[in-house]
């Protein structure tokens, strides 16, 4: 067993984990944060994307012990004071999801994308979401949602980085 201390969505957590525990399983099974999904389990689909010290990572390809000392943000941690994050609102309003399985990962990747580039072009949005696969939407409305959120966030000067 290894002792880890991580800050997840602003709360500090101390846990004993087996070194082979993947970050996604730690989040889902130990912390019951099941918004982070496992799609492929082979580092391809991005459904498991979370922010690790602000950078998007596939949590099925990170060990929980590698996150010791880090700050993690999951989809559960981005709404503030009962208000959805602008990306959550935009995915809803632009119909950026159908079954919703890919959506948490899409939104976490989009947060990292908008942190690096607050005014992405359509091509830049598509490139920024290359690590996320959607089996339903055909991506069109996802791209629209990210563009709409970017515009809204620029207008409101919302920092993309959530904590």
């Amino acid at each position: 067993m290894a002792q880890i201390t991580v800050t997840v969505n602003g709360t500090t957590e101390h846990h004993d984990v087996e070194p082979r525990t993947l970050l996604v399983h730690f989040l889902r099974e130990r912390l019951s944060l099941t918004g982070t999904h496992v799609g492929c389990d082979t580092s391809q689909c991005g459904a498991c994307t979370v922010l690790l010290d602000g950078a998007s990572v596939k949590s099925c390809t990170v060990l929980a012990v590698q996150a010791d000392g880090a700050s993690i943000t999951t989809i559960e941690g981005i709404a503030k004071d009962g208000q959805y994050h602008p990306l959550q609102t935009a995915f809803w309003e632009q119909h950026g999801l159908q079954c919703g399985f890919c959506t948490p990962g899409m939104i976490m990747s989009s947060i990292d994308l908008l942190r690096r580039n607050p005014s992405p072009s359509e091509a830049e949005i598509r490139a920024g979401l290359e690590g996320n696969i959607c089996r339903c939407t055909g991506y069109h409305n996802i791209v629209n949602a990210v563009a709409a959120a970017a515009e809204q966030m620029r207008a409101a000067a919302t920092p993309a980085h959530v904590n």
């Binding site: 991005g46 998007s56 990572v57 390809t61 990747s109 990292d112 994308l113 290359e130 690590g131």
Partner: peptide, 9 residues
């Protein structure tokens, strides 16, 4: 290389 998440790690 890969995609943004791969490039972050």
């Amino acid at each position: 290389i890969g995609d943004p998440q791969v490039r972050n790690r």
